[in-house]
């Protein structure tokens, strides 16, 4: 088994997933199986092989940095879970003593 229960708990934390006990159990087994399968690529000799991140030899696309029309702000805000004064309202991320931009409530 290539993945331990502790690995699963750690990775869930990195991925911001709050897994149930049942999911931790299930993923420990399934991810091990998938990774054992995937690990077969280690058998391949890739000593002199460059990695491919993108399949086609395309160059960067550049454009002039000029102001143009953008999508409607109201349309975006109408889809946000919470808004206030033309902004998306989110939970506080800094406490009062931190003095950061967390005010609101």
């Amino acid at each position: 088994m290539s993945i331990s229960r502790a690995d699963v708990v750690h990775v869930a934390k990195l991925a911001r997933l709050e897994l149930t006990e049942e999911e931790i159990e299930q993923f420990t087994g399934q991810l091990s199986d998938i990774l054992d399968h995937a690990a077969r690529i280690r058998e391949l000799d890739t000593e002199d092989v460059a990695p491919t991140a993108h399949p086609l030899p395309l160059a960067n696309v550049m454009r002039e940095d000029e102001p143009g029309p953008t999508l409607d702000r109201e349309a975006f805000l109408s889809q946000a879970p919470a808004c206030e004064d033309g902004y998306v309202r989110v939970p506080r991320i800094l406490d009062e003593s931190g003095g950061g931009p967390g005010g609101g409530s």
Binding site: A12, A15, E18, E23, F27, Q30, L31, L35
Partner: peptide, 19 residues
């Protein structure tokens, strides 16, 4: 939000990719 919003397969792939 992510626990409630994503299904099993999506969580599995996010876990695999993050790992």
């Amino acid at each position: 939000t992510r626990e409630a919003g994503f299904g099993d397969e999506v969580k599995r792939r996010i876990m695999l990719g993050t790992y």
